[in-house]
């Protein structure tokens, strides 16, 4: 009974929130676009040609660094939630899926790299690439749980932290030449690509660990 009231209340609130928000958002007229003009002025120094990538990895790289931290943090938080039981994980193992995955996984990995690289001139980048990679790994895990290779815990942890670590290292190096995460012009594209590559691997590992850790629980 209480649940029902709660639900209808929720529905009511959500409805009005939606109506109100759409009314407001459609009526907004942006006052100042100075940030956009500044963005386009700064683009030549950013090292990439795509604005989103430039914002994420150069102009506002700190946000990205912190977000990478958030993702690593969420993995640690999942560790904290680790329940104490054991059960056999899901698997969809048969010949058809096996063969399919044998072809599919390399394709997914390749596509991830493409997305990563293309991030510098079109939509894409490390986050999408790592999500793809993680998806691939999870499919692999679901279909071929026996042949699935899990490295040692410490190595895995190195992999998890490598993205944040590399990002912070780049920041520290850049401190010697300017401010934190300051890289411009000719060197910028190198830094951005290298950060993106490391991020893709480490975020891919973390994202797939969400799933694999959850289903491959062993009693401590």
């Amino acid at each position: 009974m209480r649940n029902k009231t709660f639900h209808s209340l929720l529905y009511f609130l959500a409805f009005w929130l939606f109506v109100g928000l759409s009314f407001i958002l459609t009526n907004i007229n942006t006052l100042d676009s100075s940030m956009h003009t500044k963005l386009f002025e700064a683009m030549p120094h950013s090292g990439v040609t795509h604005e989103v990538t430039a914002v994420l990895l150069n102009f506002r790289a700190l946000d990205t660094l912190l977000e990478v931290g958030v993702i690593l943090l969420s993995l640690i938080a999942i560790h904290a939630l680790e329940p104490n039981f054991r059960y056999t994980p899901l698997s969809f193992e048969n010949t058809i899926t096996n063969t399919f995955v044998a072809i599919l996984f390399p394709l997914i990995a390749l596509y991830a790299f493409y997305i990563l690289y293309s991030g510098s001139y079109q939509s894409g980048g490390a986050f999408s690439a790592s999500a793809l990679l993680a998806g691939g790994i999870i499919i692999l895990r679901l279909v071929k749980p026996r042949s699935f290779f899990v490295p040692k815990e410490l190595i895995l942890r190195f992999l998890y932290v490598s993205g944040l670590f590399y990002f912070v290292c780049v920041g520290m190096i850049s401190l010697f030449f300017g401010s934190f995460l300051e890289y411009r012009d000719y060197i910028a594209s190198f830094y951005i690509i290298s950060i993106e590559s490391v991020l893709m691997l480490s975020l891919g590992a973390i994202l797939s660990a969400y799933f694999i850790n959850a289903v491959q629980r062993v009693k401590p």
């Binding site: 997305i115 991030g119 939509s123 894409g124 986050f127 999408s128 999500a131």
Partner: peptide, 8 residues
């Protein structure tokens, strides 16, 4: 027009 977001 946010293809990266769509992928993610």
């Amino acid at each position: 027009g946010a293809f990266d977001l769509a992928l993610a």
